[in-house]
């Protein structure tokens, strides 16, 4: 009984503490990382090509490759803590590990955690069959055309929002036809049911490479860019700064754009400051 009450007290105080305090007032994690020669990285490797596992279970991908190069620069080893995504940000805030890669940079998250300079961007693009009459990826050129999208995805929602704008401006909306998979949208484009496909750019680049028989072409980007970066606990500004500096060096010497070509099939210019969206 006494034991139970003790553990209950511990449990309740843990609840109170975890609600009230986000991290301990201790030294910057950079000191610990350098002293232990170990960078603890939380990762949910289920998001190819950013972070995934190979057949032997080893963690691979775009961000792990950059992280390992960054660790090399700092003279430390990478230790992965593999976990499902829903545990990652709470764990980061509780100080259970040093850094986590591949987070969308959002204003909401930026209030809770700090971001290392972005390593990638997610953006949507428009794919067509060359010479099928779609001049560019600008929304005015798509007005009145039929586009294939995957149902309930972010690109579909973005196109719906753009349609509202078109209608408000008195123009014809883009007619959207929804499918379950990217293969089905490509099939609709190839047999002429759709004039374009709107999806994540890296996905479209892969489709172009896979269907060399069909004269597919990514005609341009559409909508805004969302940055993807690594998260660090707000208590460790020195660690964030050191990681950003190392990423910056890897951008400068061309390593990052090389990796972008390797994993995404295209390169993207990365910002070093002011990358947190306002809203």
């Amino acid at each position: 009984m006494v034991h139970l009450k003790k553990s209950k007290v511990a449990f309740l105080s843990a609840l109170v503490v975890s609600l009230g305090i986000t991290s301990q007032a201790s030294a910057d994690a950079l000191d610990t990382v350098l002293a232990n020669k170990k960078l603890v990285v939380a990762i949910d490797p289920t998001f190819a090509p950013f972070e995934f596992t190979d057949a032997s279970g080893k963690i691979v991908g775009y961000d792990p490759e950059i992280i390992e190069k960054v660790a090399e620069k700092l003279g430390v080893e990478v230790e992965y803590s593999v976990m499902a995504f829903s545990g990652i940000i709470p764990g980061l805030i509780a100080g259970a590990f040093d850094v986590t890669p591949t987070l969308n940079v959002t204003a909401e998250r930026a209030q809770k955690i700090d971001y290392v300079m972005p390593t990638a961007a997610s953006m949507n693009a428009v794919m067509i069959v060359s010479g099928n009459g779609v001049a560019s990826s600008s929304i005015d050129d798509l007005s009145g055309k039929t586009c294939a999208v995957k149902q309930t995805t972010q690109p579909e929602q973005m196109m719906m929002a753009m349609n509202d704008e078109l209608v408000k401006a008195g123009k014809a909306p883009v007619e959207l036809i929804g499918f379950e998979t990217i293969e089905q949208t490509v099939a609709a484009l190839v047999d002429g049911r759709a004039a374009c496909v709107v999806d994540d750019k890296s996905v479209l680049v892969q489709a172009v490479a896979a269907r060399t028989d069909a004269k597919l072409e990514v005609v341009g980007d559409i909508g805004g860019t969302q940055w993807i970066g690594w998260g660090v606990n707000k208590a460790n500004p020195k660690l964030t700064e050191a990681l950003s500096a190392a990423v910056k060096e890897l951008v400068a010497d061309g390593t990052v754009s090389q990796l972008q070509t390797k994993y995404f099939g295209y390169t993207v210019e990365l910002p070093t400051a002011d990358f947190i969206p306002a809203q």
């Binding site: 843990a14 609840l15 503490v17 545990g87 709470p90 764990g91 509780a94 259970a96």
Partner: peptide
């Protein structure tokens, strides 16, 4: 109280509180 707290909160929350709350208490 024990039964109410445990039955009234999601297991997911309890898991997070226990594993990230205890280190804050030095355990």
């Amino acid at each position: 109280a024990y039964v109410s707290v445990m039955r009234g909160t999601p297991l997911l929350v309890q898991l997070l509180v226990l594993s990230y709350g205890l280190p804050l208490l030095g355990i």
